[in-house]
Design a protein around this nucleic acid. Structure first.
Lengths: 199, 199
DNA sequence: TGTACATCAGTGAACGCGCGTTCACTGATGTAC
DNA sequence: TGTACATCAGTGAACGCGCGTTCACTGATGTAC
């Protein structure tokens, strides 16, 4: 039984957290267009002026949401890397599974996360969170040879294939649930790069 | 000297074409958010109710714009394929250059073109135009071996890498104009797939 | 322990904006005779 | 060749909608004394 006649406190307690969670669930349910200050406020149970007051307008809220997104993204990759066998190729495959999982479970968030124009680029937390995600990529590619140039080329090749794959999946160009043959595996695509372990 | 007191004809002449061109230039200048019925109408010099009347609302206009987009996209790839040396790898590289060129010169249009939810999926011209673009990919991959499975896997590997690359470029994750070393070449990434000519 | 006061998080009403859609209409075009 | 009429592309005014922002305010919290 829920409490009746409960006085709503004037101070929320953790409005920032509530608005970020509201924003992420709105993105998941209604896509990018569903992310508005007013809807976030309604879902967090505060007046629609509150988020504009708490953050510095819509862009401030988006900066906070994308910051959280990068942390969730890095976490998902790290969890799946930790669950893989402890050799470079298995760890790379784990990273891909994490990338894919994050993108599938947070489709709209994943579609806006890399676009810097959505954020205040001088926000410290945002920069730190973004770096933590990019660092996963850097670390996972480090053990391999880079026959085509420096490490950055290997990183971009892997990241690019992942990003293209989830983009097409999101837009329905690749539809793994609707084909007769074995679902296309992102790890198969990564294997086509034939990365070799250095040493 | 422009004509003064010229009577504006009640019938436009080629409103459909004018609205499609207006829409594409709006996308190029102001991104996806700039594409509205009212702005297209203003740019085409008609009342803002005209596009809603001519097409079946906003979605109808978007279907027409994306249809045009696929034709421009296929053209750009075909032009660059025709300009390449007549061997499979050079033709593939030409295709990549065309893909890249289209995406750079029509950034916002390229970012919405693959998303089927923007269009009336039963529109015949849209289906034909989209198929003509996908067919370029199919044809360009046909001469190669498919050691990882059927031809579709080769196609998706190439297309995925291109799409990831232009997405990152669009969002500033890859920034070829702002690095000290040689610009990253999409053809280098495609070469990493080590496609072998069948025979 | 109690009081006065400063701080500031969140309120709620109001504002103007641009949007897509609707609809009775106008006037140019084309066709039937 | 001329007339009557049907068609229909585009008009313009009106509508309601949701949006971000602003701002005087309220009331809870925390601190100084």
């Amino acid at each position: 039984m829920t409490k009746q006649n409960e006085q709503k406190p004037h101070h929320h307690g953790d409005l920032s957290e509530a608005l970020i969670e509201a924003g992420i669930s709105l993105l998941n349910e209604g896509g990018v267009d569903a992310l508005t200050l007013r809807k976030c406020a309604a879902r967090a149970g505060v007046s629609h002026a509150a988020p504009a007051h708490h953050f510095k307008g819509l862009k401030g809220l988006m900066t906070a949401i994308i910051t959280r997104g990068f942390l969730l993204f890095a976490d998902e990759m790290n969890v799946n890397i930790a669950a893989a066998h402890d050799d470079p190729k298995s760890r790379l495959h784990g990273c891909c599974i994490g990338y894919l999982k994050f993108s599938r479970e947070n489709s709209a968030l994943a579609s806006i996360i890399f676009d810097k124009t959505n954020c205040y680029n001088d926000d410290e937390k945002w920069n730190t969170a973004a770096d933590s995600a990019y660092q996963v990529l850097i670390d996972i590619c480090a053990p391999f040879n880079h026959p085509y140039g420096d490490a950055e080329i290997t990183q971009i090749a892997v990241w690019t294939m992942l990003e293209g794959y989830v983009n097409f999946e999101r837009k329905g160009v690749i539809n793994n649930s609707d084909r007769n043959r074995k679902p296309l595996d992102i790890n198969l695509l990564i294997d086509m790069l034939k990365l070799e372990i250095a040493g």
